[in-house]
Simulated assay, not measured.
Amino acid sequence: MPNKTLSVREDELSLWERAGRAAKDSHTTVSALVASALAHYLRATETITVRMYSSNGADRLEAFTGRWLVNAQLDSDQDPDQHKAELLRGSFGHKGASAEWRTGIAETGRGRIAVYLHHWDYFNDFPPELHVFDDLDTALHKLAGDDRIPPGVWTDARIALVRLPVVWRDI
Rank of each mutant, 00 (worst) to 15 (best):
V162E: 00
P80K: 03
T155Y: 07
L140K: 14
S31C: 04
E46H: 14
V70E: 00
R148K: 12
G104L: 02
D135E: 08
W101E: 08
L161H: 02
D134N: 06
S36P: 01
H40C: 00
Q82S: 13
R9D: 09
V166K: 03
D121K: 09
H94A: 15
V70S: 01
R102E: 01
V50L: 10
A106E: 01
N71T: 01
P127V: 11
A37G: 13
D77H: 15
E86S: 14
V132S: 13
K142N: 10
S98K: 12
K142Q: 15
Y53E: 10
E10L: 09
S36Q: 13
N124Q: 13
L42T: 04
K142H: 13
S76Q: 05
L143N: 10
H131L: 15
L136W: 10
D11F: 15
W101Q: 11
D170H: 08
S31Y: 05
L69Q: 03
G145R: 15
T155C: 03
S76R: 03
L143Y: 07
G20Q: 13
H119S: 04
H119I: 02
V115L: 08
L130K: 08
A22S: 08
K4R: 13
I48V: 12
T49C: 12
R60D: 14
S91A: 08
D135A: 02
L87I: 15
E10P: 06
W120T: 01
G109W: 04
E12R: 07
A97T: 11
N3W: 09
Q78V: 05
E10Q: 09
T29P: 02
L164P: 01
S26H: 11
W101I: 06
I48Y: 00
P127F: 14
R67H: 10
E86V: 05
D146I: 12
V115R: 10
D75C: 09
E100W: 05
R60M: 14
Y122L: 04
E12I: 05
D147K: 05
W154L: 01
H118L: 15
T108F: 07
E86G: 13
L130C: 06
D134Q: 09
S31A: 11
L38C: 11
H94K: 15
H131I: 06
W16C: 05
I159N: 05
W120K: 07
S98E: 14
G109E: 13
H27W: 05
L143I: 11
S98H: 02
D121R: 11
A144R: 08
L161M: 09
F92G: 03
S76P: 02
A58I: 10
T155K: 12
H83S: 14
G111S: 12
Y122K: 10
L15M: 09
A85M: 06
P151H: 10
L33A: 00
Y53A: 06
L88H: 00
M1S: 07
N124P: 01
V8M: 03
A32M: 02
M1H: 07
P150C: 04
D25K: 11
V166W: 00
R21F: 10
F126M: 10
G104A: 01
D25M: 12
T49A: 12
